[in-house]
Design a protein around this nucleic acid. Sequence first.
DNA 1: TTGACTTAGCGAAAGTCTTCGCTAGGATGA
DNA 2: TCATCCTAGCGAAGACTTTCGCTAAGTCAA
Lengths: 127, 127
Amino acid sequence: MTLSGPFQPTEVELQILRVLWELGPSPVRDVHARLNAAKGTNYSTTVKMLSVMREKGLVRRDESDSPHIYRAAVTRESAGKRLVKDLVDKVYDGAAMSLVLHALRSARATPDELAEVRRMLDEMDGQ
Amino acid sequence: MTLSGPFQPTEVELQILRVLWELGPSPVRDVHARLNAAKGTNYSTTVKMLSVMREKGLVRRDESDSPHIYRAAVTRESAGKRLVKDLVDKVYDGAAMSLVLHALRSARATPDELAEVRRMLDEMDGQ
DNA sequence: TTGACTTAGCGAAAGTCTTCGCTAGGATGA
DNA sequence: TCATCCTAGCGAAGACTTTCGCTAAGTCAA
């Protein structure tokens, strides 16, 4: 499996990535605090998951400091992009617009956000 | 687990649902033909998966005809809706608009589809 | 009836994901 | 030094998903 391979993060892995995306580079302790709060995860489990994720290339760690510091090796954008593509393929048979409409329908968007979507539409029209 | 419970179809289950959404109510044979073509699945496996899905309430079957006829018990829309919500929660922390933008970016939309998105935006503005 | 073929189902194996017990090293303060 | 606490890791258990071998019932034609 190459580094840029089709690594779909699993459920818990995604949960951990989210914590790292939000907190930025963090020691196990901080990641664990979140997981434990969310679902009573054991410290060992958090360590193990991070180690599994490291093998998969989903996170990296800096060992120069004593409590090692973990950081996400994939951005929220790239993970999201892949998951969206996957969802579109798996459920909508490639019809991304169906998903857009569903998502819009379920979104409670601010005027600013709506404006941005419009901007994007205009761009797409232009081409 | 209630009937309307949070049943996230698994990978293969989704694959089967897609076949049923596309073909409509079908005997195992037809579902299997697709799975087998896609990934060499054994007939027994298809039968088993359908039976598992039946227990989970993801498909129903009509036994009045001799080859039993299976049909999806969830619509593409409802499954999609749930998966979108899930994705939004898990990756975008509830910011559905981020997903919309991602999906738009990866979509190759027809003018008609773009128009529909606009219509939808107008509606949302109105409220 | 017999043989060939299709359909159905069970149970267990294989695979993957998640969890945690147990062990141990390193740091800190008494 | 010793006890305590924090950090790290391994390996195995447990849970869930997916696969398939084997069995058997039903259909149909020779």
